Amino acid sequence: MPDPRIDIHLQPDHAATALAADARTGLTSSPKTLPPKWFYDARGSELFEEITTLDEYYPTRCERAILRARAADIATTTGANTLVELGSGSSEKTRLLLDALREAGTLEQIVTLDVSETALRAAAADLAAEYPAARVEGAVGDFTEHLPLLPGDPTRLVAFLGGTIGNFLPAERDLFLRTVRDMLKPGEWLLLGTDLVKDRATLEAAYDDARGVTAEFNRNVLHVLNRELGATFDTDAFAHGSHWDEEHEWVEMRLRALSAQTVRVPALDLTVEFAEGEQMRTEISAKFRRDGVERELGAAGFALSQWWTDPEGRYALSLAHAE
């Protein structure tokens, strides 16, 4: 079994440079914002894994259930030789797809993309051991920048799961989907996970659980700024909250200053003032309707082939082919 090939598309200082740029932009904006990707240091990733097991957080369970029920259909419909997973992480859910493609006799190649070299190498090694008949190739990169550089032989199935597309603003979603379409040949496939619009109580609870795990996850971004940029955030001086924005149909996660505060960020030579009660947005998580997903896919050059939801209609997987 050959070792997985790993391509590195990020400079060694990529994370530090990107964090500094995002922090400067977000902390000097009005209202203040931070991108959600900075939640996911080692501690943040542990907390998110815990979140996925909480009663209130249904998306992971729903997506896994749909994949269990439909993986064989996906394999049969696509006849894919290559599975490309974007933001691979541990690749746990995609094993359902890989097993189905192997069972169908078409699986030849597995391509994984992740921003973390450590996580990617571990996932690629595990996949190579579990699927010895397939070539495993990894790419350390950002799925907003490096999609055109990914390896992969037709027919490809690109999997973008977990509802991650909901973290993009509409213009960012459009650019992302067009970029995925541009990397594919006509007739190749995209499998997209999207959380669906539902009642406010269910949505807000999913991002503000009773045990406070999501609150700790949200405040973890302040720990990241303190550690990496020397910032002086008092993490206990910020309260977590989630808010359903009905107009935009997305959930916002926010951190609210419990008192007026002055925060120094030495690495940026920056002083940031927070008024009492001031809120900083740390994540949007857009929710979708079928007609909206179909419209956005169509605008990017995809045709929706299959739409599957869990029995309660809370979450959807879309299978679309490149036109």
Rank of each mutant, 00 (worst) to 15 (best):
D236G: 14
W189R: 07
L67C: 06
T28W: 06
A322L: 00
S91A: 15
P266C: 03
L67D: 01
V263H: 05
W308H: 00
D245S: 11
A133N: 10
E92A: 15
A239G: 13
I284E: 08
E56C: 03
K287S: 01
T118D: 14
I74F: 01
A124P: 07
D126N: 13
R135Y: 01
A159I: 08
R254C: 11
Y207F: 15
E117I: 03
E172L: 09
F176R: 00
T33G: 02
D73G: 01
L149A: 15
P148F: 10
Y40H: 11
R5A: 15
A69I: 00
L96T: 10
P2C: 00
A210S: 15
Q261E: 09
S30C: 13
V140G: 00
K93E: 02
L255T: 09
Y207P: 12
H243F: 14
A71K: 01
S29T: 14
L169M: 13
V272F: 04
V293S: 05
V111K: 09
T144K: 00
P148H: 11
E278M: 06
L297F: 00
E296L: 10
F168M: 13
F302S: 02
G298P: 09
A69K: 02
R43Y: 11
I284Y: 06
D153I: 03
G152S: 10
E246F: 10
L47C: 05
D209F: 10
I51Y: 03
Y40M: 12
L10A: 04
L157W: 04
D234L: 06
A71V: 02
W308M: 01
L222P: 10
L27I: 04
G313Q: 08
G212W: 12
K32M: 13
M253R: 07
D195E: 07
S285T: 09
T52Y: 05
V140E: 05
A122W: 04
E63D: 06
R178Y: 06
R95L: 09
R295Y: 01
L47H: 04
G79N: 04
L169W: 14
L97T: 05
A133W: 02
T262D: 10
A231D: 09
E137K: 14
D291E: 13
A206S: 11
D208E: 11
T60I: 03
Q261A: 15
E92K: 12
I66D: 06
